[in-house]
Nucleic acid binder design. Structure first.
Lengths: 193, 193
DNA sequence: GCATTATTAGAATTTAAATTCTAATATTCC
DNA sequence: GGAATATTAGAATTTAAATTCTAATAATGC
């Protein structure tokens, strides 16, 4: 019926994610994405409404894939071993989804969900954040029923420490397999404090 | 002889750092800084040559203060206790210099040292990075003479883990005192892997 | 008190980048 | 093979923000 598109929306978002991983949100200009994706600037607006929408999609997609990996582990988490397994999802994610992990480990939501981003995106972003907070809180109440600071401790252990560890390598390199042992040991010790 | 300036360059950089900590590099517009510093936009150009120069100054100042704290500890580091002390410099820094720590923990050099930044700044930034790399490498060769991956392990332990831990709290909150024990335990365990 | 001079103040201009628009192009179905 | 139509392509326009500029201001030293 009509000429087929050379790339679809998700490929466009992937291209933008790659740019973001290398040069940050500010570097995600329409010109840069157009070059990275190999499409003219005009075509980008057939896929997304605006640059702000594209940036938001980048964040939501990266964070969404990360949470897809981590949330089930958080909700099943019942003991120290489960927490360590959850922490190790981060280096695994950094290897399987390098660009998304680079975005998440070295950037902040606010850079991608900008003041002028359509409300729809702000909405989805805060839903994601809430889901994560809730999952951590629930897991903490199981693992540390007595500890009022359990939530913070768990957040540091299963998110902060692993993310900090992979950030040493991203985006230039892929985190080496060896750091998994380091992360596991660090997380175990952190949980026991 | 003449009217005195209402703020000097370093106060301007501090104001820009505060903005950057809250909304990231992209949010550091001349208008936003002018508002935060309480000076008209034009006055900003009496202190710095351009927005790119201002962004670079923000990064160099934040990173400079962090390194001032950490580099001496790295060069004196002779054992595990020294490494832990060094790691704890990060939460201490996050409490004493909240905005700078927020910038460093959730942003990347490339966002502040931009493609069009004057060469002078690119120069200073890579000197800083080199100094850090070298200090870590030297410390690693002392603590882990045999281990070829000692450098990476030490970087993860004394920089990655503490930065990841404080990032859970920044920029909204000040990292609570309690996480120091968590960081210390995590770093000790990481070093022993 | 007055001349001097860097600074304030913010309006005007410039610049860079986002967005829109028009024409040409390909593919599919009939 | 030809009509239909979404896409490509990139030039033209718009917009937002950086930068520059001019006049008014306020300390200081004489």
């Amino acid at each position: 019926m009509a000429r087929p598109a050379s790339i679809d929306q998700s490929a466009l978002i992937d291209a933008a994610t790659l740019v973001a991983a290398r040069v940050g949100a500010a570097g995600v200009s329409i010109a840069a994405v157009s070059k990275a994706a190999g499409v003219p600037t005009g075509s980008i607006y057939h896929r997304v409404a605006s640059r702000d929408a594209l940036l938001a999609e980048v964040w939501l997609a990266a964070n969404g894939r990360f949470q897809q990996m981590v949330l089930p582990l958080l909700s099943e988490m019942a003991n120290e071993a489960g927490a360590i397994e959850c922490a190790l999802a981060t280096p695994r994610f950094a290897r399987s989804d390098h660009a998304a992990a680079s975005v998440l480990s070295a950037h902040r939501k606010e850079e991608f969900i900008r003041p002028h981003a359509p409300d729809e995106y702000r909405q989805r972003a805060s839903e994601q954040a809430a889901a994560m907070r809730e999952a951590v809180a629930n897991a903490a109440s199981r693992l540390f029923p007595a500890d009022t600071r359990g939530k913070e401790k768990l957040a540091v252990a299963v998110v902060g420490i692993p993310l900090g560890a992979v950030r040493v390598f991203l985006p230039q390199a892929i985190p080496p397999q060896e750091i998994d042992d380091t992360i596991a040991a660090a997380v175990r010790a952190a949980l026991r404090t």
